[in-house]
């Protein structure tokens, strides 16, 4: 399975993503600098976490205008799977590959902690190794993860089963106490219409071995290997 990681100025989880991909897919991903004009033939594009362009103007806004994003958008529209993690999710909404916006966290603080997520469906290329409704623990590390969308968009996302992950408590309830950042409907991640673009705020690439504190993130990458290798 060939994968590509896009590197923007001030991306800082590109190496984590690369290590996870190499460990799980068995081959090193291509690291693509944002100023390039095209992504080589690939089975998966990853937009990593970080603070691209210092979060100037809005998180992800500058990166969404990078030369490489024209090709990322074209490839996503042609069906190449795209995974956006944290800042990568912000870039995906800013480039309109995913709907909505990611705003400043409800309590204005930068959050860095483990959260419980409910896997909303286990039948996508990103989640086949999880069970529907499974509760996993994944770390978050963000300042702007407060998912917002219009009522209409929210209805569409819910109606079409496009919510990928939700912040929940240990019993799986999407309470406001379990919601770290104020996201509407406790949304932690969403899919595009054809379920091949996933954006999520939590960092599955940081939890892929016991040495790192757990393996709950493995399933996402193993699902991709099963679907794409």
């Amino acid at each position: 399975m060939r994968s590509s990681v896009i590197v923007f100025p001030a991306s800082n989880c590109d190496r984590d993503a690369s290590v996870a991909l190499e460990q799980i897919t068995g081959s090193k991903p291509s690291m693509i600098w944002h100023a390039e004009s095209s992504v080589p033939e690939t089975d998966l594009i990853v937009l990593p976490g970080g603070f691209s362009f210092g979060d100037y103007l809005r998180s992800g806004a500058m990166a969404a205008q990078s030369p490489i994003m024209k090709d990322v958008i074209a490839k996503a529209k042609a069906g190449v799977p795209v995974l956006g993690i944290c800042n990568g999710f912000q870039v995906l909404v800013e480039s309109e590959l995913l709907p909505g916006a990611l705003m400043r966290n409800r309590d204005i603080k930068f959050l860095c902690k483990d959260v419980q997520l409910k896997v909303e469906r286990g039948d996508t290329i990103f989640t086949s190794k999880y069970n529907q409704g499974e509760i996993i623990t994944i770390p978050i590390a963000h300042h702007d993860g407060n998912y917002f969308a219009s009522d209409e968009t929210l209805k569409e996302l819910e109606g079409e089963g496009r919510v990928a992950f939700r912040y929940v408590d240990r019993d799986g309830a999407a309470t406001s106490e379990a919601n770290p950042n104020g996201s509407l409907n406790n949304i932690a991640g969403i899919y595009n219409k054809d379920m091949k673009v996933l954006g999520l705020m939590p960092h599955p690439e940081r939890l892929i071995s016991q040495e790192l504190g757990g393996t709950d993130g493995l399933g996402l990458f193993e699902s991709l290997v099963e679907a794409l290798a």
Partner: peptide, 8 residues
Amino acid sequence: KLLANTVI
């Protein structure tokens, strides 16, 4: 295109 995010 850039200066405002018209979603919000």
